[in-house]
Structure formats: C-alpha cells, structure tokens
Amino acid sequence: MPVRRLRWYPRTLFPFQVKASPMNESFKRGAREGLQLMLPMSVGLLPWAIVTGVAMRSTGLSAVESLGMNLIVYAGTAQLGTLPLIAAGAPLWLIFVTALVLNLRFVIFSAALAPAFHGQSWSKRLLSGYLLVDGLFVLCADRLLRSDDPHWRWGFYVAPALLCWSMWQLGGLVGVLGAGVFPKDWSLEFMTTIALMVMLVPMVKQRAMLVAALVGGLGAVLLRGVPLRLGVIAGIALGIAAGFIAERWSEKRRQAW
C-alpha cells in the first residue's frame, strides 16, 4: 500500500501539488529541469531588480508603494518606462497606453506559448500569464512546445517562473531599502534613463530596429508640444511604422540584388 505523505501546508495556499503518482513525478522532473535551466539567468535579474527598486524610490514612491508596484506590475520595462510619467504627473490614460506599448511584445510571446497551456485550468493560465517574463520565454518556449506531457510542462514552466519572480522581488527589496543610503541631490532618477538605455542598446544592433528607435525618440522630442501629451504616443507610432517600412525596404533591396 502506498504511503500517503502528510501535507504540512493548506491546499488553498499551494493548489498545484498533487498526490504521489506518476503525474506528480513528471511535474517534479519538469520543475527540476526548468530550475536548472533558469538558475544562471535568474541571478542575472538581480542587478535589474535592484536598479528598478532604487529608481522607484528616487522617483518619489514610498517603500510600500515601490514594493506594491513590483508585485502588481512585475514588468521591469513597464515599471521603469512609466516612472518618468508618474514623476511628471502625466494623465492616467497616457501612463496606461505607454505601459501597454512597452508590454506589447508579450502578446507575441503569449500567442506563441498558448498551445503549451492547452487544457490547464483558468487560474493556472492566469498565473502563467502574470509570470511570463522575457527570459522565461527565451529559455523555455522551445522545449515547452515540444513536450506532450501536460504535467511535465506545468512543472517546467511554473518552477523557473516562480524562481524569476522571487529574484525580482528580492532584488527589488534590496534596491528599495538601499535607496535611502544615497543623498537626495545625486540625480539618482537618471538611473531610470540608464536602465532604459541598457535595454535599448542590444535591440538596435539590427538596422530596422535602429530606425524605429531613432524615429520614435526624435518624434517624441519634436512632438512634445502636441496637446494632451500625445507626443510620446505619436512618436512611438511613427517609430513602429518607420521600423516596419525599413524592414520592407531592405528586404526589397535584397531581392533586387
């Protein structure tokens, strides 16, 4: 007779555990493999999380508000990108649209990963959505989509996803608590711009991406006088269009050769 292990935690707190059975084994195997794969990259999240924590505090958010933002938003780019707008007292809709644009890449990830969550409950899908960060997609998508064992897939996704989440919250806490060490007049809010630049630089190594960035940035600068602060959004729209056109154009040239 199989021995049933006692559960020391209430089921409502951790609803994903299943009784000892083959599917539990394959969940554990997936979780172990996922954690091994993610460990190096999740440590790389720490500097980001710390910088974001410092940036939130130096924008003027309280410690509680900063930690709240880390929990509610859990998206570094959208957090850093909306901080200048929060500091400037921008209208809610502009902050919302900017965050939406900064997060739009996740629609592509979500579309690509959706088959891996086939048959999962709605609550697990909701949690999966909240936890879907860039590094997770880059590292896990391929193997996730090739496996036909739903329990292995769930372990392979949720374990590294929670590892990333923990690292982000931990680094954020360090940054939020450490930010008070620096004097107020040290222009620490510039850390936000630096962080955004460090994200942008590897993207623009591709020609069309560089065009999108230049047009988007200069557009936002030149259109800053447009009413309702539409300049930022208009700049972004111009940048996307310019990148798309540049890609088409270079393709045509390649075909003509």
Binding site: V101, L102, L104, M203, I240, G243
Partner: peptide
C-alpha cells in the same frame, strides 16, 4: 509589433 519596444524605449 517587434518594433514597439525599441520605439517606446527611445521615445522615453
């Protein structure tokens, strides 16, 4: 959509 993040980051 691939160009959205680069355009948005630069616009900020």
């Amino acid at each position: 959509l691939r160009y959205a993040p680069a355009a948005a980051l630069s616009a900020l």
